[in-house]
């Protein structure tokens, strides 16, 4: 009995801590974003912070999509052959490459961002539009997540499926499109969503590489603080929050479906 009570106490402590330190502050941000005045509890409701020109919500959302969607697609395109090689081929240095794939997760974002900034400023890349540069950097952010999911997908795939296709007359390219890729789709989808969510949320690396007119949501939240209007910052932050929550939930759901 005593053990069960202890367990209950621990559970409720965890719930309380979550509410106090995570949900309450987030709820406050959420409420503030609809608050016309600067009060703790809103007395009326407005959407003006969402539509305000200075908030830059529209352009920021546009930049986020322009950067993260191509980054995810490129990341997946790179991860598919990578996953095939890692799961199906034996070669020297395979373990090294496995570690290398996960490296961007391990390296501090500040260092990576700084490195990219110096690379851009000291080469011909300084004349390139910031969007392609952001896409390149975000591809690096996406790949560890996409590749990990796709490698796992390949490893789970029954090789006999591809062999069956071959004996039925399917050349390798046809087998890839009709059998391998459809079977990998849940892994591709989950990896893509996870990578997308990471890309949308990235602040540190992105901060080094933005230029006026090319500022994604995550950095825009920070930029708006200079206007001294907390409600405006809250509005941009709320949009970012909802975006990443949505994608994380979808990714979780897809992963769970796939495990079953």
């Amino acid at each position: 009995m005593k053990q069960i009570n202890l367990f209950r106490v621990a559970t409720w402590c965890a719930v309380a801590l979550t509410v106090v330190f995570i949900l309450c502050p987030l709820a406050l941000v959420f409420l503030q974003s609809f608050n016309p005045q600067l009060t703790l509890i809103p007395k009326s409701f407005t959407l003006k912070w969402y539509t305000m020109q200075a908030g830059g919500l529209g352009p920021a959302l546009r930049t986020t999509v322009l950067v993260s969607v191509p980054a995810v697609l490129i990341g997946l395109a790179v991860s598919l052959p990578l996953g095939y090689a890692m799961a199906r081929c034996e070669f020297r240095g395979k373990e090294f490459i496995r570690q290398l794939i996960l490296l961007p997760i391990v390296i501090p974002g500040v260092v990576l961002g700084l490195a990219y900034l110096q690379l851009v400023n000291s080469t011909a890349l300084r004349d390139v539009h910031p969007i392609p540069i952001l896409i390149a950097a975000h591809t690096i952010i996406v790949i560890p997540y996409a590749a990990r999911s796709i490698i796992a997908g390949y490893e789970r795939l029954d090789r006999a499926l591809e062999e069956a296709s071959a004996t039925l007359g399917g050349r390798p390219a046809l087998t890839f499109w009709r059998v391998t890729l459809p079977s990998l789709m849940p892994a591709v989808f989950a990896g893509g969503l996870l990578g997308f969510s990471r890309s949308v949320n990235d602040f540190v690396i992105t901060l080094f590489l933005i230029q006026p007119g090319a500022i994604p949501l995550s950095v825009q939240v920070y930029q708006t603080t200079q206007y001294g209007i907390p409600q405006l910052t809250s509005a941009v932050g709320t949009v970012l929050l909802i975006c990443s929550l949505l994608f994380t939930i979808i990714a979780e759901y897809v992963l769970r479906v796939e495990v079953q």
Partner: peptide, 20 residues
């Protein structure tokens, strides 16, 4: 010849049916 040019029917132990 590669398998796709041999016209052999193959039944696998795991059946290897295309799940999708």
């Amino acid at each position: 010849l590669p398998p796709w040019d041999r016209n052999c029917g193959f039944v696998f132990q795991s059946y290897a049916l295309f799940p999708h």
